[in-house]
């Protein structure tokens, strides 16, 4: 005789069904339209396909070996990390400071939040032209301003060398992205129920103390998500760099994102037709980013405070 399922087993099956139904739509699309093409791209990374035509021969690990001895690959990797660290520090330091100031001292919060988010709304590709203007050696606003106040010796070719170029790019990146992370942090702060602050306020704690001892730990989870997002997005950075320097001069300001594009599609006048190698670089990027994020998550894992 078939045994009737116990209530427990019933619940378990229902739960399993629930889990499956809820995961299915998103992961089905993800699998078909993202993972599958990505695997195809990985396959391409082992060939020497130019990207055109259908002649591609299997290359084994040649592409990967080539990548490791490619000077520009290491330059771009270094630049990506420099941007990630430098930009990350600026963005998150400022975002936390601004979030603190806005939640504690400002009445018309929406004004600042909207304003700071504005750059993120604009098409990066179009606005980088403006930034190139600003940093231009001859016509640039920055240099004119420096000369006007007598700081002539600082008026260099900003986009003309690796250090100043990456510095300029990092600043522009921070300018574009600050609002985004500020809003993430701000919305996390607003979700904290007021009741948690009441006791501290009654005890006469200062704003700063409240921020560090109460707010900060409670938004930790979302903050770490935000930083992980920054790590990934900054390593993938493309449009800002491509718009400002196209990786130049002399391939010195390439980041991973632009070097991949350069190898896949080239520039208008100098085509490279090397999709196989570009895919190899992309695989490297994914590996680096995944390691970076996973390591970061492990290092900062903390017990989440339930409230």
């Amino acid at each position: 005789m078939r045994r009737l399922k116990t209530i427990r087993e019933n619940r378990k099956t229902r739960t399993r069904l629930f889990i499956f139904t809820f995961l299915f739509p998103a992961f089905f699309l993800y699998l078909v339209f993202f993972i599958y093409p990505a695997i195809d791209a990985i396959r391409i990374s082992f060939t020497d396909w130019s990207g055109f035509g259908t002649s591609a021969s299997f290359n084994g690990l040649d592409n990967y070996a080539r990548m490791l001895s490619d000077e520009v690959f290491w330059i771009s990797l270094g630049n990506s990390f420099a941007f990630m660290l430098g930009g990350g520090i600026i963005v998150f330091a400022l975002a936390l400071v601004f979030a603190y100031l806005i939640t504690n001292y400002i009445v018309h919060q929406k004004f600042y939040l909207n304003l700071f988010y504005f750059p993120n709304l604009i098409s990066f590709a179009a606005l980088t032209i403006l930034w190139v203007f600003i940093f231009d050696g001859t016509f640039g606003v920055l240099n004119s301003a420096l000369r006007a106040v007598g700081l002539e010796k600082f008026a260099t070719a900003w986009l003309g060398s690796r250090k100043t170029g990456m510095g300029a790019i990092t600043l522009v990146g921070a300018w574009f992205y600050l609002g985004f992370y500020l809003i993430l942090i701000y919305s996390a702060i607003t979700k904290i129920p007021d009741s948690l602050f009441e006791a501290a306020i009654m005890d006469g704690a200062s704003n700063l103390k409240i921020f560090f001892k109460i707010t900060f730990p409670l938004i930790w989870e979302i903050l770490m998500t935000a930083v992980a997002l920054w790590i990934i997005n900054s390593l993938k950075l493309f449009e800002i760099v491509w718009g400002m320097t196209k990786g130049g001069p002399s391939m010195q300001t390439h980041v991973m994102g632009t070097y991949i594009y350069f190898n896949a599609f080239g520039t208008y006048h100098a085509f490279t037709f090397r999709l196989g190698y570009a895919s190899t670089l992309a695989v490297a990027l994914v590996i680096v980013a995944t390691i970076a994020v996973t390591a970061f998550r492990r290092l900062t894992a903390r017990e989440t405070y339930e409230y």
């Binding site: 993800y30 339209f33 993202f34 993972i35 599958y36 093409p37 990505a38 195809d40 791209a41 990207g51 992980a228 997002l229 990934i232 390593l235 993938k236 493309f238 991973m256 994102g257 991949i260 594009y261 896949a264 599609f265 999709l275 570009a278 895919s279 992309a282 990027l285 994914v286 680096v288 980013a289 995944t290 994020v293 996973t294």
Partner: peptide, 18 residues
């Protein structure tokens, strides 16, 4: 992990297979 992997993929490479 597959989500994190997916986030790191630069979209331009998926253009041709897609």
């Amino acid at each position: 992990t597959s989500i994190i992997f997916g986030m790191s993929v630069p979209e331009l490479l998926l253009i041709i297979p897609l």
